[in-house]
Design a protein around this nucleic acid. Structure first.
Lengths: 197, 197
DNA sequence: CGCCGAAGTTGACGGTGTCAAGGGTCGGGC
DNA sequence: GCCCGACCCTTGACACCGTCAACTTCGGCG
């Protein structure tokens, strides 16, 4: 019941596959076969193989934006760390989406208006937060540097954890949350804790 | 003269292609044809398609290690920033290597002893530097967090610059060096400047 | 000379993305 | 009642890809 459309079936199957094996081995024909249709059926819902990746990326950017917005609203005391945590958590919890979102060769963001829009919305959350933190009269140069620093930190940590060698090198991460928070501290990004209560 | 071996010809052609078009479109047969040999000839020098990527990654890790060591030796006043700069510079100057080195699905580091060794050597430069900076009696927890932070910053900045949306979002980077240094400052990683002279 | 191993060639196989053409199955207008 | 077009899907073909297997060529060494 609630028979999924072929489009959705293909999409969820693809995301699942990517989360497990990475995007590169993904085969158009294979997902079609898994969905029980002919190898050409998906072409009526996606123009290309690339179209699948674009759809996945768009889906991903939308929930990515929401996750970051929610995180900012949820922790007014240390929003920067909360944002960082939301970024990394999204990457690790939705690897099927995340791995595609930052692979321009796969999804060719610039070639798809709608995709470009939702991607921009995600990044705006980040740089707007930095703008808010530094205040309206901070020099542009500082805003850019700080945004680059924070984004790099979040993105680097995400990619190094998701399939990079970080965990192999510095030891297993028992608590994701603890790691993120201590990284935020070590990098001077966290808002200093006030002795509450 | 100094007629290159087929192995080297294939390797340099592959690196060049990857730097321009990314690793995924790289075709075994295509590089063979470009080298003027039959489509099977490279099999006598690389076991797999994967073998090419492993060779590229190994090559990359070796010069990566050297670049970082040189940078550390070159700027004793602010070695952390120098290391950061060397990391990012390597990525941007050798995209053909860098893009492969951190794609375990392509080069399967764990399956190749020699490759694992040179990769480990690179990462050791990084964590050893952090250990040196924090001193021998720093708690392990701090070392891990600081190493993760610094590595993430360098890696994130590299990947976001190399084909990520950073430059599109925060504006064009006129001076790579200036950006890196202000990012290092903003993230509290740089050694504070002493009023020299 | 005879042999061998390394390097390169040709041919074949299954799998993949994509183009082209055809076939059903609806709903709405005559 | 019937036709027509839109939509979804199928079948068939093509070139390209990675890889396995067998064959040729050739330099060196006993």
């Amino acid at each position: 019941m609630a028979t999924e459309s072929l489009r959705d079936t293909v999409l969820t199957a693809a995301v699942e596959y990517i989360a497990e094996h990475g995007p590169d081995g993904l085969s158009f024909r294979q997902v079609a076969q898994a969905a029980g249709v002919s190898h050409q059926a998906p072409y009526h819902h996606f123009t290309d193989r690339r179209g699948i990746f674009q759809a996945i990326a768009a889906e991903g950017y939308e929930s990515f934006t929401n996750a970051m917005i929610d995180a900012l609203a949820g922790d007014p005391d240390d929003p920067t760390t909360a944002l960082l945590e939301a970024y990394v958590n999204f990457a690790l919890d939705h690897p099927g989406h995340f791995r595609v979102m930052f692979r321009p060769d796969l999804c060719a963001i610039a070639e798809n208006r709608e995709l470009e829009r939702v991607a921009d919305a995600s990044f705006d959350v980040l740089v707007n937060h930095v703008r808010d933190m530094l205040g309206p009269k901070a020099p542009l140069k500082d805003i850019r540097a700080r945004a680059a620093a924070m984004w790099s930190l979040a993105h680097g940590l995400s990619t190094l954890l998701i399939d990079g060698p970080l965990e192999a090198k510095i030891g297993p991460v028992s608590s994701r949350r603890a790691l993120i928070r201590s990284v935020a501290e070590q990098s001077g990004m966290a808002t200093p804790k006030k002795r509450s209560r």
